[in-house]
Simulated scan of single mutants.
Amino acid sequence: MSLKEKITDDMKTAMRAKDAERLGTIRLLLSAMKQKEVDERIELDDVAVVAIVDKLIKQRKDSIAAFEQAARQDLADKEKAEMAVLLAYLPERMSAEEVTAAVQAIVAELGAKG
């Protein structure tokens, strides 16, 4: 199942559960995806969807900082909730130790020195 299909299924699940907050965030994501497809006349793959999710998360982080600076904690909390929903669609990131181990394995495989 592609990421795009998973997001659509999650939207249907949120509709059935009457989870308005989650549904709104998922619809926002689907709207951004559809806009990208229409603008560029392409079919999005998982990599493009992850890029859109990253962009939306960055927007949420910027909004949270601005709202907290303006003492609008209610709006900051709403943005944090949206960001939590969006984070579920990102692939798991590698830890620093995992990256180091992978690089060392590649270096050993290639026999590189220095």
Results as ranks from 00 to 15, higher is better:
Arg16Gly: 05
Ala48Lys: 09
Lys58Val: 09
Glu82Asp: 15
Glu98Leu: 05
Ile7Arg: 02
Ala65Gln: 11
Ala51Gly: 12
Met15Trp: 03
Gln59Leu: 10
Glu109Gly: 12
Ile57Leu: 09
Thr25Asp: 04
Val38Ile: 15
Lys80Val: 07
Ala70Thr: 04
Gln73Cys: 00
Ala81Val: 03
Leu75Ser: 09
Val53Thr: 04
Arg60Asn: 10
Asp74Tyr: 04
Lys80Pro: 00
Leu3Asn: 05
Leu3Asp: 06
Tyr89Pro: 02
Val47Thr: 15
Glu109Gln: 15
Ile57Tyr: 02
Thr8Lys: 13
Asp45Thr: 06
Ala70Gly: 10
Glu5Met: 09
Asp54Arg: 09
Thr8Cys: 08
Arg22Gln: 09
Val50His: 03
Val53Glu: 01
Lys34Thr: 15
Pro91Leu: 07
Ala105Pro: 02
Arg93Gln: 12
Val50Phe: 02
Met33Gln: 06
Glu79Ala: 15
Glu97Ala: 15
Arg93Trp: 00
Glu79Gln: 14
Ala51His: 08
Gln73Glu: 08
Gln35Val: 11
Glu68Trp: 01
Ala84Ile: 03
Thr13His: 08
Val38Ala: 12
Ala65Arg: 11
Met15Asp: 09
Ser95Met: 06
Asp9His: 10
Met33Ile: 12
Ala17Tyr: 00
Lys113Arg: 07
Thr25Lys: 01
Met15Ala: 12
Ser2Lys: 08
Leu110Ala: 10
Ala71Asp: 12
Gln59Pro: 00
